[in-house]
């Protein structure tokens, strides 16, 4: 009987330990993100978005906890409205959301924990954030952000040397461009005589790839700096 109880206890413990608490997984990620009080980095932006034609741009991005974000660029740089500093600031506010584990999924050779994060306040634009987390390195491998205004945005994360801070070396944003509409009064080409064939299978997704380099982490960026105009 005693032996049976010990066996039962060991089995139960193993089960409990294996089925990780999503809060604990997320906490580890959050703790890693919180190590970064501020950062700056060079970023190479490649945008491949239907209806927008733009060359690659080099810019510099700055971030400071909790939610300050700034882009400096000589040319016009297009970035996704969500998924940059705002996602970090959302995740670092642990009282602002609740989460649930949705199983595991392989991303490449990494077995990730899939966690759904739901904001607790209705005032926020976010509806649902789904995260694929590498529980060994405690970093986000993929995120899916669904918001009221922007629809769904997918973000793929790639890491190299700044993995200790949870800072990616590359981000690939997949955005939904179905909502994009041209203002007719401006876009209508008054002198256009040839009608363009309408392609029903026209690409509906756009991709923005950000490649980060020269990270400067925790150098003490001032709040005032983010208020200055470029």
């Amino acid at each position: 009987m005693k032996l049976r109880s010990i066996f039962f206890f060991i089995t139960l413990s193993a089960f409990v330990l294996n089925a990780q608490d999503p809060n604990l997984v997320l906490k580890e990620v959050r703790l890693k993100l919180e190590k970064v009080a501020d950062y700056s980095a060079q970023v190479h932006i490649h945008a491949n978005i239907p209806m927008i034609k733009i060359d690659d741009v080099n810019a510099k991005v700055y971030y400071k906890q909790p939610n300050l974000f700034k882009v400096e660029s000589k040319g016009i740089a297009i970035l996704p409205k969500q998924g940059m500093g705002d996602l970090t600031s959302f995740l670092t506010n642990e009282k602002g959301y609740t989460c649930a584990l949705n199983g595991t999924k392989m991303i490449g050779s990494v077995k990730t924990q899939v966690i759904s994060v739901l904001p607790l306040t209705e005032s926020t634009d976010l509806i649902l954030v789904k995260l694929w987390i590498d529980p060994i390195k405690d970093v986000i491998m993929k995120a899916q952000v669904t918001s009221k205004t922007n629809g769904t945005l997918d973000i793929d994360y790639f890491y190299t040397d700044q993995v200790k801070y949870g800072l990616p070396s590359k981000l690939v944003f997949t955005i939904d461009v179905k909502k994009f509409k041209l203002p007719k009064s401006v876009a209508a080409d008054l002198h256009q005589t040839k009608k363009k064939p309408t392609n029903t299978k026209e690409a509906q997704d756009g991709k923005i790839t950000l490649e980060f380099s020269n990270y400067q982490v925790n150098k003490g960026l001032s709040t005032q700096f983010f208020k200055q105009k470029q």
């Binding site: 000589k74 040319g75 016009i76 409205k81 955005i175 909502k179 994009f180 203002p183 401006v186 470029q230």
Partner: peptide, 17 residues
């Protein structure tokens, strides 16, 4: 903003426009 309105819901345009 009139020109970029429908894009600005999803994208942010940075730089000296």
């Amino acid at each position: 903003s009139f020109v970029t309105a429908s894009f600005e819901q999803t994208l942010s345009f940075n730089g000296h426009i």
